[in-house]
Design a binder for these strands. Sequence first.
DNA 1: ATTCTAAATGTGACCGGTTCCAAAAAATGG
DNA 2: CCATTTTTTGGAACCGGTCACATTTAGAAT
Lengths: 357, 357
Amino acid sequence: MEPVCVIITKKQKGPQKGGEKEKRQVKKETNTTAEKITMADIAEMAGVTKSTVSRYFNGGSIKESTRKKIQEIIQKYNYEPNTFARLKARESNVIGVVVPTLNSKVTSRVVTSIGRYLREQGYEVLIKDSDHSTELELKNLQRLMTQNVDGILLSAIAITEEHRRLIASGQVPVVVLAQDFEDGISVIADDYGAGRMIGKRIGRCHPEKVAYLGVDESDIAVGIRRKQGVLDGLRECGVEDIITVEGDYSYESGQRMTEKVLDRGKVDALICATDRLAFGAYRILQQRGLRIPEDVAVAGFGGYDESELLMPVLTTLKFDSYAMGYLGAETLLKLVKGEPVPKKQVIDFQLIEGKSS
Amino acid sequence: MEPVCVIITKKQKGPQKGGEKEKRQVKKETNTTAEKITMADIAEMAGVTKSTVSRYFNGGSIKESTRKKIQEIIQKYNYEPNTFARLKARESNVIGVVVPTLNSKVTSRVVTSIGRYLREQGYEVLIKDSDHSTELELKNLQRLMTQNVDGILLSAIAITEEHRRLIASGQVPVVVLAQDFEDGISVIADDYGAGRMIGKRIGRCHPEKVAYLGVDESDIAVGIRRKQGVLDGLRECGVEDIITVEGDYSYESGQRMTEKVLDRGKVDALICATDRLAFGAYRILQQRGLRIPEDVAVAGFGGYDESELLMPVLTTLKFDSYAMGYLGAETLLKLVKGEPVPKKQVIDFQLIEGKSS
DNA sequence: ATTCTAAATGTGACCGGTTCCAAAAAATGG
DNA sequence: CCATTTTTTGGAACCGGTCACATTTAGAAT
């Protein structure tokens, strides 16, 4: 691929510093080269002090006439105070969000939802992507705690002892998303309940043998609780012959696990820890000429938009990720403001009936 | 849905301030309540001044023995300087990223890629989600410019006059992603070339009549160039009977447009501006009992993972979003450092041959 | 008009860093 | 061993804001 067009440019140096104030005065009229404008500048133009302008933004008694005047200047220059320069402020109005990845349906929904709520509430959001690395996650968490944020929303890969220590040590309120966190505040999905519901949904068709495609148990929510729910749900319906396999969250892993299961003999149903794994299962089942659901029923978790595209449509359990983000953010703000909050909150889920079971 | 458990907690107030220094000295030994630690604290413990510690981090001549000593303390306290307190620094080491939404395959890939590169280069990334609002997008852009970032990566909804003005006015280098930006630096996908490739791919099967499901022309890249490419590609193969419809980027929009097209009469192929629209088309075609590709061929743009799940697998044109993020970030850093950069760079695409055409 | 109180503004220290410049310490050389 | 240069450090101002407190102004009450 060739560049359509490659023109070399050079960064032009900004105007030299020195005699700033005077220069700006001139520029104020001509408005040619927009210099960075500060609160002091605004104050000067409005004929008041920094403190008064600060009061304008943060609330405090101001005479109506001064307010008008400041407002005018603000608007004229489209000024907004630099959020990160509020070093002295007791509240920074910044909330940190740590996520395992941005490259996932669930997290991107959660983060979008968080952003909407917090923006509306006048907070700045600092998103930290840990890129699937627990090490980076801890670093992000630690960094946020020292970076003067008012609170942190943590969607952890898995809560470790180190996490606990950091959170406990800190003076920053933390709300944990999607993972149980006994020592603190969390907003979780009822993975056990959801698992049980899917287990029963599959179980009541009386399959002889069922396979569960799961993930590593270091993820307590998905790896343990969801699985346990599925197993219990199935057993409640009298299903006893259950095999479980483990992999990661990828499409390919779904394929591998399915192959592994099929190689061990016939199964009547596959319950997959996430829709993505189910996608992999579909691919393999189709390759082997097995019909869904006649030969093998399939179910997943997630309620991805794409699950509806599968032929047949996937039966899946949908968590309300938007609600999780919203509720998490709301809870964190309450916490920040010192209001009482429930220690553990659980978000809704919903069975999406497909044709795959 | 009932909370599993609702225990009311109260935010505990931090320890009172006053006599800080002395207190910290004590805490240093016991290490019980981790107080926020500053560069001055580190300096004191190392028996040097703030300036020296600052030099430690930013490079400057330091005696080996002092370096060791500082390093030791740093590690012991796991200290990292507060990135946002570098008010005085000429470089903030922060890069801002503005995206239309985080809730999209493409952007989340782009952002992930940007994050990886910039983190590696020691930069902090400030992600601003505009949530599909041009107004918010402009606000984000403007805010970033005054918030002392070293550079901005802008993935715009559509570049307006206002965008141009802001970017031109500013002293902050900006690299625009995915949208042509004649006045400045951009990294784009070759939408015209990609469109033409898909157009020819479909055209060479000699369809009588082809429909293009497109989007609003305010998006120059997708709305205009991609479409033009498709049209030209088809015409090169002698296809003359082409109808075009317009909608938004949603799954539902894909459905609606397909219905509209089919209601107007038979078509031999549907070319969709994005895979998501193609998903909608699939659904409608299946509903109406039309076979893909026998009755109607379908093609898309995007190369989403899910496109492979469709039955039959979707023929689509994949852009390397990771490359776009990486290249954009790399270019921006060069720009920041005053190195020469190409004005316009084009990322790769790749035809994914499915069974839908 | 005078006193008292409340509202509005100014003053200067401070937040956690960086930077410039001067002072101190170490290395060099004659 | 002392003068000179170079390397390391310290001191103080500064970045763009906030805050506690002092001061001024305006309004109410006597």
